[in-house]
Amino acid sequence: MAKTAFHIPLAYQNRMFGYYLGQIEQQRRLLQHVRQSLPENLAKHVCHCLASNNTLLVYTDSAIWASQLRFYNQTLLAAMVSAAAPPSPAVQKVNIKVMTETTGATSQQGGKKPHVNIPSADTIDLMQKQSASISDPTLQQALQRLNATLKKRAERS
């Protein structure tokens, strides 16, 4: 039986493959530079970075860290100006995005409704009675609207 040779895909002269490898390397360097400009506890939650047009896209692993990273927008912009990578001087704004851990996709519900905990009927009735004793009319009206919404949702489920 004759052995067949298996050629590694990288051995072929393919311009598109080389282009993608270059893009991956550029994003890796950008990620490294962004992580160096942040405090260590925040840097480890930055998953990916991408410079697109005049925007630096920073992907993180949770909404909590995304809210913390938003405080560092100016720091990230300053880091991009001082970076030696070609796309960095054009960066004028930072966009923070959250990625889900399982799929790597950005967090959007995709048609699914989030799970909502609806209080029991007794709790809703108690809230309705308590809202009648509130002296502030704006707060009382808001609580009554909340109770009406909770009753409708409780009836549907």
Rank of each mutant, 00 (worst) to 15 (best):
I24L: 15
L21K: 12
L30V: 10
L38N: 09
H45W: 00
N14A: 10
N14F: 11
Q23M: 06
A43K: 02
Y20N: 06
Y20I: 08
S37P: 05
N41G: 05
A43E: 03
N41P: 00
F17I: 11
Y19D: 12
F17R: 15
Q32C: 08
G22W: 06
H45I: 04
N14G: 12
N14T: 09
Q23E: 05
R29V: 11
R15G: 14
L42M: 06
Q32E: 09
V34P: 05
V46D: 02
K44S: 08
Y12A: 09
G22H: 11
C47K: 14
N14E: 13
L42N: 03
G18V: 04
Q27D: 14
Q32Y: 07
L21Y: 04
H45V: 01
K44E: 04
Q13H: 10
G22V: 11
H45C: 07
L21S: 04
Q27Y: 09
Y12K: 02
V34K: 02
L31C: 14
S37F: 05
L30H: 02
H45P: 05
L38A: 11
H45Y: 04
R35M: 12
L31D: 13
P39M: 03
K44H: 01
C47E: 14
G18F: 06
M16S: 15
V34W: 00
Q32A: 14
C47P: 05
S37D: 10
L31V: 14
M16K: 13
V34M: 01
Y20T: 05
Q13C: 09
G18K: 03
G18N: 07
P39F: 02
Y12I: 05
A43R: 00
Q23P: 03
G22A: 10
H45R: 01
L42A: 01
Q23N: 04
N14I: 14
R15V: 15
Y20R: 10
L38H: 04
Q13S: 15
R15A: 15
Q23W: 01
Q27V: 05
E40M: 09
Q26G: 04
H33M: 06
G18S: 08
S37Y: 09
H45D: 05
L31K: 14
R35G: 12
V34T: 02
Q27P: 04
C47Y: 05
N14K: 07
A43M: 02
V46P: 04
S37M: 07
L42T: 03
E25Y: 06
